[in-house]
Every structure is written in C-alpha cells, then in structure tokens.
Design a protein around this nucleic acid. Structure first.
Lengths: 258, 258
DNA sequence: ACAAAAGTGTTACTTTTACACCCATGA
DNA sequence: TCATGGGTGTAAAAGTAACACTTTTGT
C-alpha cells in the first residue's frame, strides 16, 4: 500500500526514543490565492480524508522549532509568520482504533501500546505564507499535499476541523490588533488586493474608501510610483509594507477593531 | 527537611506511569484584593524562591481538567474562569540541575534520567478567582502558599516570571474584547470597585464617568437598589452582573478597545 | 459645614460610516 | 465610447474624551 515502508518503520521504531511522547504540533498553513484563503492539507494515504501537516517534537527541540520544521518540510519556506494559538488536549481527540486500523491496512504490524498509538496532546500553530512561494510536499505517510479553499474543505481526520476553525478565530482576532498581509501577499500588491485579503479573513465586505483610509492611517504602507498594468480599467497603485513600521505595529498592536 | 517523604516518594516512583511525561500545566491564579491584583505563589521548600502552582497531567485526563484540578487543590475553588494562554516549550526552560540539587538537598536519591528531571513543556493557564473565597493551600513540595501583589513579585523559579508576564498580556487582551469581573469580584460590587479592577489590570487611570457609561453600555450589569454603607461620603450603588448577558458577551465578544 | 467621593449631563473632538464624482484603461 | 474598477473628498452619525456641578455621608 505504501510506497516506501523503510523510513516509516524507522520512524515507528526509533520515534519513541527521539521524540517527546504524547506531544505533537499541527500547523494550519494559510495562503492567499485568487482572492481565496487556502489551507495546506495532506491526503490520508488511503482514506478519503485529509489532515493538517503535523509532526513530533524532538527531545531537545523547542516546540516552536518543531512547528517551523514542519512548515519548512511541507512548503520549503522558512522565515514565515507562525503563531501558536491553542493546545488541543482532550484524551479523546486522537483515536487509537483509527490509527491501528490504518497500520493494519498498511500491513504494518503494531502492538496496541506502541508509542504512536498513545494519546497525543497537540499544539496548534497557524502560519501565514506567501502562496506563490510555497512548494507543497508530501510526507512519509502522504504523497499528496494540496491547497484547499478554506470555505470548501474536504473531510478532515480526527479533530482537525476544529483546529482549523480555532485557527481562523485566532487569525481574526489578530487582525483586529495587529497588521496582517506581509506574509500572505507578494512584495508588491495593490490596495484592492489587500482589501480582498481582509475581506476573506473576516468573511465580510468592507468599504473600499474607508478601508484604504484606515490602512493608510496605520502608517505601515508605502505607495510606489508604479501602477498595475494590463487591467481593463484605471490602474491601481502598487504598495509595499514598510517593514520596520510593520514590525513595530506587530509588536505594539494597533488596537482598532472592525 | 521535608515534613512527609512518603507521598513524595510515591509521586516520584509511580508518577512516570500515571502522568504524561514531559508535559505539565502551570496556573497563574489571579485574585483582586484591596485594589491590587494578586497572584498565588508557592514557596520553594528551601530556596528563597517562589513558584506558580502547577501539576502533571494524568494519562487519561484532559489538559484543561489538569489545570482545574491544580486550581481546586490550591484554592479549594472550582467553577472558576480559566484560560489557556500559551505553551512554554523551550528545552532550556526547566533545568535538570536545578531539580537535581533540590532533591539532593532533600536527601532523596535520584538518578539523572528520572522522569521528573526530564524536559517539561508546560501549558500556561490563567485563572480569575474571587479572592475572598479562596483558601490557599500548599502542595506536597511546599507548605507555603501565598498571595503576592502582581507589582511586587518575589524571585520566581525557572521561567515562571515570563509565564506571569505573558498571562498579564493575555489578560489585557481579553479585557479589550470580553467582559471581566464576574470571577474576580464578589457578587455585589460598586462601580468604583469595578473601575479599580480595570485600572489595575490595564495599569492606567480611567475617567470615572466615561468608564461607567462604557460599562453600562455593555448591558451586562444590573444596578441594585442597595448602596454601600458606612462610607464617609456619598454611598455608591451596588451592582451585580447579569450572568446570562455576561456569558453571552464572553462568547460573542465586545470589540471595543481601551 | 466641610471634605471626600459618587451621581449625572453637556460640549468638543475624533473616528467611523455612508456616499458621489471623477479618472484611467482595455475592449 | 463605454463599462469597469480605482482614486479621492465630504457630510452626517456615532463614539470618545474632557470636563463641572450637584448630591450624599461621616466627622
């Protein structure tokens, strides 16, 4: 069933010694493309279900580093925006039967007290990345890594749907007191593009003029002399973030509230 | 050195089987008394240092339940406001040497690979409780459990100071989009008392009249006919929270921003 | 009767909202 | 030249901030 069993066996055998047991990270990796917010998901190796990219934590690895590592492995990107947002710690959240059945189907024998079947508490992170720069890559257990529209998610395993939802709530909260966009948009972008991003995250329409005024009032944007080419109407200006001020705003907050 | 060694030995021996290894909870328990925000701390058994109440997580226990359990054990209270706010997951945050030295001083022999000396990732919770109802109680390792003024903390062990600080930041954030007070104040309270609570948490003065207007606009307060007695000036009215509306506001948020 | 602290109301200021008009571009 | 969407400004409404006077109570 699986392409390569050897690395998996290695993981299963040695994992218990290399990783913290019972603790994992799961990443809600968000990108923005064609006016839609996208989540990166991994196809379950034979079930018609998808999963958040996640991973275990090496015994001497900071939890944040584990999340960065997952991110790097699935997208090729480092230096992204990554935020821890919630711990999912119910004993019922991972199901031993679920995984046992998986490994049985794989033809991998496994005793029911194997470390990988134990209860796992997972730390949820959300990452904001520039869609076009990411190169989705599968992992050991899944060759298929794809972007999904946040509003049209497939069936997810375990409690991963809840994790996505909580991430979105956390993201919206961030939106109301920190700037967003640097990690989700290309270096140069237009005001309508930025607005679309906000509208997508907030899931509501905003007034064009008021939005522009508000964002400019944050003083984190620089308008370039350049305008977008090839549009069948008045060309919008390009903007970029003033990174220094952007980071100040990240640190100190914007208050506001939509 | 220690009063009772037997329960501790039990913990040390059986703990590894009963608890999740490498994961713990720590609680920043906040109360409000005499116009000051207080934190509940445990005295280290012989060091001149204090610690946050914390604990391990039973293998089949939800992480939130572990935090509630710690809270109940240290204060006698259940049904309190408890919020998970951050995971502290740096490998360097707990020091094996620190604990080894402790147990040596206790005269408890311990091999350096004992479970309790391993790296622990801790989930930080903050709790808001009604000061006067709590009965601080020590734990196995510490007989002395006391309230400390948030602005005059003693030396804390490990990274507990950072945990307190992060809890305060999280609490201030909560303040700006959720109501606060139900769990920190007695059932009946005056507007100036509530204002003092907000001022203490935000660490800034607020205008009396504007504060009152703003809080009343949330529609979560009921003014009682009763006024406070025995004050050498005009007696303030008592208020209480309209619990139903209060909980609605907790769920749905207030937006606003101070 | 006075000092201290609470109740209440009003006015100026700022921010937010809701719109309307003009402009540039590709089809 | 027209349809589309972007740039900009302004007036009304709402919310916030600043402030003054009156009321109550214990001493």
């Amino acid at each position: 069933m699986l392409r390569v069993n050897e690395p998996i066996n290695q993981l299963l055998l040695a994992g218990g010694d290399n990783f913290l047991t019972s603790l994992s990270v799961d990443c809600v990796i968000l990108g923005f493309h064609e006016g839609q917010l996208k989540v990166l998901l991994l196809k379950h190796r034979y079930r018609d279900m998808w999963a958040l990219p996640g991973g275990f934590i090496y015994k001497h690895e900071p939890t944040d580093a584990a999340a960065y590592r997952v991110l790097k492995e699935r997208t090729g990107l480092d230096d992204v925006f990554l935020n821890q947002f919630h711990v999912f710690g119910d004993p019922g959240r991972s199901s031993k039967e679920f995984h046992l059945e998986d490994f049985e189907t794989d033809g991998i024998p496994m005793s029911s007290d194997h470390w990988i079947l134990q209860r796992f508490v997972t730390i949820g992170y959300y990452a904001l990345i520039e869609f076009s720069k990411a190169i989705p890559a599968g992992d050991l257990l899944s060759e298929n890594c794809q972007w999904w529209d946040i509003h049209e998610l497939p069936t997810l395993i375990l409690d991963h749907h809840e994790i996505v939802n909580k991430a979105l709530v956390a993201l919206r909260l961030q939106l109301s007191h920190q700037p967003i966009g640097y990690n989700l948009l290309p270096e140069k972008f237009t005001m309508p593009e930025l607005q679309k991003l906000y509208e997508t995250i907030l899931d509501k329409k905003l007034d064009r003029r008021n939005f522009q005024r508000k964002l400019l009032s944050f003083n984190i944007l620089q308008r370039l002399d350049e305008t977008k080419k090839g549009v069948a109407h008045k060309a919008p200006y390009y903007y970029k973030f003033d990174l220094e001020k952007y980071n100040d705003a990240l640190r100190e907050g914007l208050d506001s509230g939509w």
